[in-house]
Structure formats: C-alpha cells, structure tokens
Design a protein around this nucleic acid. Sequence first.
DNA 1: TAAGTATGTTAAG
DNA 2: TTAACCTACTTAC
Length: 272
Amino acid sequence: MPEGHTIHRLAADIGIRFGGRAVRAASPQGKFADGAALIDGTRLTGTEAHGKHLFLGFAAVGWVHIHLGLYGKVAFGDGPAPAPVGQVRLRLHTGAGYADLRGPTACELITEGEKDAIHGRLGDDPLRTRDDGERAWARVSRSRTSVAALLMDQKVIAGVGNVYRAEVLFRHGIDPYRAGRDLTRAAWDLVWADLAALMREGVRLGRIDTVRPEHLPEVMGRPPRVDDHGGEVYVYRRAGMPCHVCGTEVRTAELVARNLFWCPGCQPAATA
DNA sequence: TAAGTATGTTAAG
DNA sequence: TTAACCTACTTAC
C-alpha cells in the first residue's frame, strides 16, 4: 500500500477521526511504549504528510513521526477498541473509534527541529500544493542518472514509489533508462502534472489506478485486473504479459534493488 | 511448517 | 553493494 498517496490519505483520515481531541495512546507491542505514554491523553493538534513521511502533532509533547516502510499499515475501527490482534506498535483511540499501526519502519517522538530536518532532506511532493516541481526539475535536468532511479529518489521527488514510477513513465512513453538531463522541460512538466493528478486520485480512491478510460478492460475486452495492490495498471508487476496498448511483452529488470517494469514497444530507447 | 514476496529505507562494509 | 529490519499473507513441500 504505502506510496505517497497512502500517507496523505492517512494524514487526512487520522485528522478527521482524532484531530482536535484528546486521544488515548498505547503501544500494545511495547516498542513505542515510552512515546505512547507521553502523548496518552493529550490533544492531537494537527496531521501532516510529506512524501512517505507522516507527522502527527501533539502540541503539548511534539510530533510522532511515522514511516510505514515496505509493509507498515494502519487499520481503523469504530467504537471502543477490541483486544489488539498481532503486533500493534501504536494504538490511538477515543470512545468513538481507534487506529492501529503495525509494522512501520519508523514510529518515534521528535521535536519541531527534527521534523524540519526531515522536510529539508525530502524533495518536492506532487501532493503538496506548495510544491511546483521546480526544485525536482533542477535536479533531474542536471543528472546523468536514469529517470527511473531519479523518480525513486526521495531527495529529488518525495512520495513516488515503485508503482507510480513504472506507470507514469509508461503513460508518457519514456524509456526508464533515459538520463534525467535528456528529458525535455516539456516532458518533465507533463510527468509532474500527471503524477500530481494520479496521486490525488490515489488519495481519493485509496488505491493506484493509472489506466486511461480508453484502455480499461471492459473497453479492451479483457478481464478486469485482480492484483493484491488493488488497482488497474499498465505495466507494474505485469512482466511477460502483453502490453494493454501495443501487445509487446512487458519487461522487468532490477534497478537500484527494486523491480522495474516497462513496455519496450511504448517506451522505446532513444536511438542516436 | 517453511519459504517467498511486497507499493521502503538505512547502516555497514 | 549488501544486509538488515518491520509484518502479514500466499505458496510450496
């Protein structure tokens, strides 16, 4: 689940459920027992997301910084909280509802200054209205690194993960191995705007859908995709299967320790 | 029961 | 560049 859209959605959902109220906090699993004890009973004063980082503000204490990593999850429930199931790092609850955090890479209490430092090392986030992609373009346009690697670099662009990376490159017919500096300004502007739109839709739907209406399965005569990541996509995890648009076999390769997917037909390597 | 996999990041070498 | 870490679920034996 966790690319930037998941985190922004969590910031909004936690804000709606618990914002402005005194909340009870506990760490049933024990790994965040000290932090939970400090915020327990204090008021949640704000929530924020930047890229894949989530910040829960408790003005009286500080910020809870959460990073879900690869398999972290938050589960919500209504009513009084039942006995915790599995490894619950942090449980927030009121009489009206609860949220359970499991498996995060990070769940820690930090100061305003430490939070600023995290923002400082993150790049532009397509989901933050204050970010326009200029800083990201400054990095991309000067880099010999592949655009596929740049899109995964949180210092360059924050919140894009393996799914959005693969899908946005497909949607713009960009060869993932093309160097950042070989992208045109116009191509970058389209990629940035598309990421903002796709991810905003991801926040709204709670899943990653990237297939244009004219390529939807009911139009193309193929069965709807059933995949555990939950959305309709062009190339992500479709290695060896025919491209929805041109029929070429989707390829996969490892790039910076992650699985890259692309269609060589729709995203041809530039020829000199 | 064990192994493998996952939308991620960091620290060690 | 490699390994480690966090959890739950699926697949293989």
